[in-house]
Computed example of a mutant assay.
Amino acid sequence: MSFDKYLKAKKALIITLDDAIYPEKDYLLQVYYLFSEFMAYTEQFDAKVMLDFMKAEFELHGNKDIFLKTAAKFGIANKYEHNFDLLHETARLPLKLLMYQNVLSLLQEVVVERNKIILLADGNPAVAINKIKQLEWHGLGEYLEVYFTAEYQFSIDKTLAAIFASKNIEPQEVTLILSENQFDQKIVNLDIDCFSVTEIL
C-alpha cells in the first residue's frame, strides 16, 4: 500500500489512540476478563458467565455503564466499581496490544521519511498511559510524542492548536488520522488533511 497520499509534503503525522492505532476492544475485553477473575476470587462468582455477559453487553452497547449493568445482573456490591475503574488504569494485560497492520506500516514509513509521529490520547490520561505501555510498538515508541486532550479541555481542536504552536508547524503541513467514530462526528474544525483510519485499513 502506498502512503504518499498521507505523507507527501508533510512534516508530521498526528494520530489518535483508541480505534485508530489499535482496536480498543482488545484492551477492554482483557480488562473485563481480569475483573471477572477478580470477582471469582473475592466473591466466588462464575468468571466465565460474568465475562460472557460483559462481552455480549459490549458488543451490543459498548463500554458505557457496563459495570452498572454487570452489577445489576450479578448482584455485585457498589464498592467494587472502584476496582473496576482502577483496572482500566493499572491492569497488566495477559496479551500485548497489537497495532493495525497497515497503521504500523504507515508509522514505519513516517519514521523513514524523518517526520514526526504525534499521538493524541483522548479521555483519562492514566488509562491512556496504561494502553500506550502495553502496545507492541515494534521499536517506534522512541519516535512518539504524546499529547493528552485532557490538558486542553478534552478538545482535539485545542490540542492540535497547541501542537502547531509548540512545534512551529502549520495545519497544512500535517496529516491527521482519526478513528472512524471521531471522523464521522467531524470534531476537527481546523484546516487540516484529515482521514478516517478505515481508509487506511
Rank of each mutant, 00 (worst) to 15 (best):
A126N: 10
A126F: 07
A126I: 00
A126L: 13
V127E: 11
V127D: 08
V127Q: 11
V127T: 12
A128R: 14
A128I: 10
I129S: 14
I129P: 09
I129A: 14
N130V: 09
N130W: 10
N130C: 10
K131W: 06
K131E: 06
I132Y: 07
I132S: 01
I132T: 02
I132Q: 01
I132E: 02
I132A: 04
K133G: 12
K133D: 14
Q134A: 09
Q134F: 12
Q134C: 11
Q134K: 08
E136F: 09
E136M: 08
E136G: 02
E136D: 13
E136W: 10
E136L: 11
E136I: 00
W137L: 06
W137Q: 01
W137H: 02
W137T: 05
H138E: 14
G139M: 00
G139A: 05
G139Y: 03
G139D: 06
L140R: 01
E142L: 06
E142F: 05
E142K: 13
Y143K: 04
Y143N: 07
L144Q: 01
L144F: 03
E145D: 09
E145T: 07
E145F: 03
E145L: 02
E145H: 01
V146F: 04
V146E: 04
V146Y: 00
Y147A: 03
F148T: 00
F148L: 05
F148R: 05
T149R: 05
A150C: 10
E151L: 10
Y152R: 06
Y152A: 03
Q153H: 12
Q153S: 13
Q153N: 14
Q153T: 00
F154Q: 10
F154H: 10
S155I: 11
S155H: 12
I156P: 02
I156A: 04
I156C: 04
I156K: 13
D157S: 15
D157Y: 12
D157E: 11
D157V: 12
K158S: 12
L160E: 07
L160K: 00
L160N: 07
L160S: 08
